[in-house]
Nucleic acid binder design. Sequence first.
DNA 1: AAAGTAATTAGATATTTGCCTAACTACAGA
DNA 2: TCTGTAGTTAGGCAAATATCTAATTACTTT
Lengths: 84, 84
Amino acid sequence: MNALFKALNDPTRRAMLELLREQPRTAGEIAEHFAFSKPTISHHLDLLRQADLVTSDKQGQFITYTLNMTVLDEVLGWLLQFKS
Amino acid sequence: MNALFKALNDPTRRAMLELLREQPRTAGEIAEHFAFSKPTISHHLDLLRQADLVTSDKQGQFITYTLNMTVLDEVLGWLLQFKS
DNA sequence: AAAGTAATTAGATATTTGCCTAACTACAGA
DNA sequence: TCTGTAGTTAGGCAAATATCTAATTACTTT
């Protein structure tokens, strides 16, 4: 829960999730959409992975990141308790 | 959106919201539930108010905090886009 | 008017965060 | 095997965050 909210508490990381909503992408493809250095992007992706919001899959030289939506249920559930 | 996720990114503040889910409470009543100093509690409440997650109402010497659930729709909406 | 209570504001400090450059690892192709 | 490419890891720095104590504001009560 902590790692989840932490990961979501950054506009760049939220934009990354939106990007991955369309389709899985490699770290490099993701990086192209932002003005930050590759290490910074890598760090953001690491936080998303720590929160289990994305999974990573290495294929040869490329690492593909895929959105993991199931973990969002935890946040949704927590938020929905307030809507009743 | 930023202020919202920022406010939610802290276990103490999330616990405060859960407390207020039951009923409105004064700053002092809220403080009783935590081991932090009053200024620290006050600061957390301020962040919740900045995110519009709570409203405050001064009655004499007391300030009562009330949960504002409507603003959660924004977060819920953002999260739900990933569930489709 | 003085003292007490509720809460905030101010100021200081330690930790965490987000960013960078430089260095490194791993794979691919000539 | 050498060179290039994809990506991460390491190390450093500035800004933001969470906490505290001390001081202040506003109200209540005697």
